[in-house]
């Protein structure tokens, strides 16, 4: 049922945007942005269920909580960057959108730095000491 609601909202918004775009491109953009925002916020609540399942899984299997925290951060960063980039792209600013995505990628990579440093240290420790 919710799926139909969301699709209906999207279709309505699309038709309205097509009508308005000829006269006022500005309002067309605003309409698109707000529709996107609404659907995004609506779905954020649904994602919470999935995240709860993930947390449950992590707790039960006893993997370190830092893994789950990092992974959730990655998901959050990815979603926010993607959403912002799409809105900006709708407005026609392709270059700014790609910068936003780039920022998201950089932040995700920064997440990996502690892990990489631990692994590198371990590998170096594995190597026999130079004679």
């Amino acid at each position: 049922m919710e799926m139909i609601q969301i699709v209906g909202l999207g279709l309505m918004a699309t038709v309205l945007i097509l009508v308005v775009r000829e006269q006022k491109p500005m309002f067309a953009f605003l309409l698109a942005a707000f529709t996107g925002l609404f659907i995004f916020l609506y779905l954020i609540g649904k994602i919470e269920i999935v995240i709860t399942v993930l947390e449950d899984l992590a707790n039960r299997s006893g993997i370190p909580s830092i893994y789950l925290k990092t992974i959730l951060k990655i998901i959050g960063i990815a979603y926010i960057a993607e959403f912002g980039a799409q809105i900006v792209r709708d407005a026609g600013q392709e270059s700014i959108a790609s910068k936003i995505e780039f920022a998201g990628k950089v932040f995700i990579l920064v997440m990996a730095v502690p892990i990489i440093s631990v692994i590198v240290e371990t590998v170096i420790g594995l190597l026999p000491d130079g004679s």
């Binding site: 990996a112 892990i115 990489i116």
Partner: peptide
């Protein structure tokens, strides 16, 4: 995003 996230998850 998937490529980058895959890297981190792979490290995990």
């Amino acid at each position: 995003m998937q490529r980058y996230a895959r890297l981190v998850v792979g490290l995990f």
